[in-house]
Amino acid sequence: MDTDLFSLSWEPLDVQPVIDKVVDRNCGAIATFIGTVREMTHGKKTLKLEYEAYEPMAVKTLAQIGDEVEAKWPDTTVAVTHRLGTLGISDIAVIVAVSSPHRKAAYEANEYTMERIKEMVPIWKKEFWEDGTQWIGDQLETTSYDKEEKP
């Protein structure tokens, strides 16, 4: 797996360079997903976010997800760039681009990639709400660590 396909960036993201990484003469479809910073979550207003990562492991884990995708959907190519640092509302947090000969595999592989990112890539989001800050600790984005059960 080409690790250039998977990267982290402290600078604002641009979609086109990520798409360019997966362009292939034999692909007939490129599905892109752009994750952006949402202002309102269940009535709570986000002012900004901070992302941090265990950087070398995050890149390695993204590449492992890429291997899984190529095994499940042959002839696809995946590229992921995830933003780190401070993001404002509507800033791009993540871009996933998948190319494949036909569109169905591109859609499916793109969704699978995002699900796996949310499960296992060591990247963390800190929410700065109007009324405080919280590390987000699950993928429903509603539960903070404060609610983590005690042993």
Binding site: G35, Y51, A53, Y54, P56, M57, A58, K60, H82, A93, V94, M114, I117, K118, E119, M120, V121, P122, I123, W124, K125, W135, I136, G137, D138, Q139, E141, Y145
Partner: peptide, 29 residues
């Protein structure tokens, strides 16, 4: 817990010199 940048299982044993990372539930994406 990750040992040398790979997720480890509860009963895996840590060796001298290993880098051990504590990874709370992730929230990328």
């Amino acid at each position: 817990v990750a040992v040398n940048e790979e997720f480890a299982k509860d009963d895996d044993v840590i060796d001298e010199g290993d880098t051990v990372a504590f990874i709370p539930p992730v929230s990328g994406g």
